[in-house]
Design a protein around this nucleic acid. Structure first.
Lengths: 388, 388
DNA sequence: CTGAAAGCGCTTACAG
DNA sequence: CTGAAAGCGCTTACAG
């Protein structure tokens, strides 16, 4: 199994390649290799046609199950191609057909976006579904340079992909306006930014937020800190509005001293918790807009010597796998992210294949009660029924 | 900005596509669309040649910076192409040049592999580097069906990719033997499975394990539980061997009742901790082979009412971002996963471009001390110097 | 029912 | 220094 370099001429050094590595991404060094250096070709349609004694067109039609080909010819050709171990060159197929059967997943320009289990679950659903439908998945990150160089359109124009799934979007993403179903099919995953009216598949944040708030209110909590994220994110706004409305329903006036941006990170969640607690030392619960911020908040509370949930209850949003393993385990809203990724992929592919209907789907969410929540310290004094 | 479906004929429903969705992945439905349905083409070399009044070959050479073209022609053609907003069709380029400038990342067939921050960090480094070098990244998961259908070779044969990065590998991955640098360039990331002698770039597990063990031993720990993972993983074996040798150096006999497989998951870590603790209620520390198992173990200890680190110290391995935010924050070995992903990508691309040398690199690791470790309960009775 | 031919959009020897 | 031509490996009208 030892792999030796047998001097077959495939190892010519590329003087220019190292210089280019740090500059413009360019494949000129590859494209300028002499033809004899190329990986050897496999069996193609012409080989098959020769062996089966038919035309290239016939072979092609057999492989594409074109019904115009007779049973006998079909069988004969199929057998030959199987025996030859033929594998169609997808570059040629795509060049001819104008379809690539590749999808791009566009991740946001956020540190550790790849290492974030939220995106990971979505991606997992996307990849599983894409694979089943015969599509490949390409990863891109929407860094400033990526957008400025308009690479989000270039991947279409240069025939890398047939469609793109946008994750982690918000209303500042002006580039979303560039996507138009006809030449640039795109679908927003788990969000619905108002910057552009695009196809989207998302979790039901409204219902999830309602469940977690009703639960906290029923436990007697009234002074509830709320760690949210940038207001330019539609889902964050939705949860924020539910927070406002549910409190109002229980006769609690909206008070911005309970609110803080936690930037969807552990650090941000900890900082936000600290800020809210300074202003409102009397709070009895903290509701976070995602699990990472909730975990950051719990970490801070632990540091401050506060006991969760005895002193303060904490809730998350996402139900990442690992939320069940922090101490105490986290009460949170379960988001079916895998399913959302999977359905989003289905819908995008349908759109690519010409389905005219716009896509706007909401998937159910539900509350998962664990150990980070308990009755409010002052529950006896609270009313347990909504005022409305 | 409303996107209407203007009946331009691009939305013909595909009767057959829904039936196929659940069966054989096939793009026959796409490939059989009539030509008029296709997305309209952009500007190509021929358009440019016509406008610039030169041949297609000349335009091609200009764009590839072929030095044989005169200054004047080059400038003229370049200007024309810029004005036309020309973007080369990469399918045609690749079909002609035989290079795709796409890399595959092969993830293991593990539940939540995508949502695992360990793979996420590696992937992040891979994507950043690939993008800089003008490569695209495609994701694949090595499910049984994927390997059985030999898709790990098909992605090369059908010209999807030029090379593959293998993550999460172990010695049972027989398919690794199929990769040969010449037709199938592959590089193993953060491991070195003995099943095949392949290029690899990995963290220095030996040094990391030595640091964490020396640290625990210096704190007076002698009865140290070890939560490891399958013995068919080279890196796990390395850590295991260090555990054995460091303990021996301090005069502690190897005792398998301290050892348990934790399967690299939180659940597995919790289970393993429980099992070890049942056999060895006298242990004072638990060393885990990764952060997730350590976190699972801490969760169990918390459940059992044991205090970490007062009763039992716990250490991890990875230093995932979130290890700093569990309670207590986790002492662990920092693995430079982003860097490993990045270097691995560099090396694979060099190999694709013909570099003959084999790749075998180790990247430094270091211990990060946080709050999950403390002096052993019985530290006074322990010796603090190695016996050797 | 099948074949010869044109075309997808590039790159690269080969001439001149 | 530049162009005409062949080729990469497919698909698909167009004939017959």
């Amino acid at each position: 199994m030892r792999q030796t370099n047998d001097g077959n001429g495939d190892h010519r050094p590329f003087a220019e390649s190292s210089a280019q590595n740090e500059g413009e991404p360019s494949n000129a060094s590859l494209l300028s290799r002499s033809r004899t250096d190329r990986p050897s070709r496999g069996v193609n349609l012409r080989d098959g046609a020769r062996v089966a004694d038919v035309s290239v067109a016939t072979v092609s039609m057999v492989l594409n199950n074109n019904p115009r080909i007779s049973r006998t010819t079909h069988a004969k050709v199929q057998r030959v191609m199987d025996k030859l171990g033929y594998q169609p060159n997808r570059l040629a197929q795509s060049l001819s057909s104008r379809y690539t059967c590749v999808l791009a997943v566009l991740l946001p320009d956020v540190r550790h976006a790849f290492a974030d289990a939220y995106f990971g679950e979505l991606l997992s659903g996307v990849c599983e579904r894409a694979q089943r439908l015969g599509y490949k998945v390409m990863i891109e990150q929407a860094k400033p340079a990526f957008i400025e160089e308009r690479k989000h359109l270039e991947i279409f124009d240069r025939r890398y992909v047939d469609g793109v799934l946008c994750l982690g979007t918000n209303d500042t993403n002006e580039f979303l306006k560039d996507f138009d179903p006809t030449p640039y099919p795109a679908l927003v995953v788990d969000n619905n930014p108002i910057v552009a009216e695009l196809d989207h598949v998302m979790c039901d944040y409204e219902s999830g937020a309602t469940q977690v708030l009703n639960y906290l209110l029923q436990l007697g909590h009234r002074r509830i800190g709320f760690i949210t994220a940038a207001n330019e994110i539609t889902t964050a706004r939705t949860v924020h509005n539910v927070y406002r409305r549910r409190l109002a329903a229980f006769g609690v006036a909206y008070d911005s001293s309970f609110i803080e941006d936690g930037k969807f990170t552990e650090e941000g969640g900890a900082e936000a918790a600290r800020a809210i607690l300074e202003r409102r030392p009397d709070l009895t619960a903290i509701m976070a807009g995602n699990d990472k911020m909730a975990i950051g908040a719990m970490h801070l509370l632990h540091r401050m010597g506060k006991d969760v949930p005895r002193d303060i209850s904490v809730t998350g949003f996402d139900d990442l796998h690992h939320a069940a393993f922090v101490n105490p385990s986290l009460t949170t809203v379960h988001l079916p992210l895998y399913q959302v990724g999977s359905i989003a992929t289905d819908r995008l592919i349908e759109r690519i294949q010409g389905r005219p209907e716009r896509v706007a789907e909401k998937i159910n969410t539900h509350l998962v009660v664990r150990d980070s929540t308990a009755m409010a310290r002052d529950a006896s004094r609270a009313t347990f029924e909504p005022a409305d």
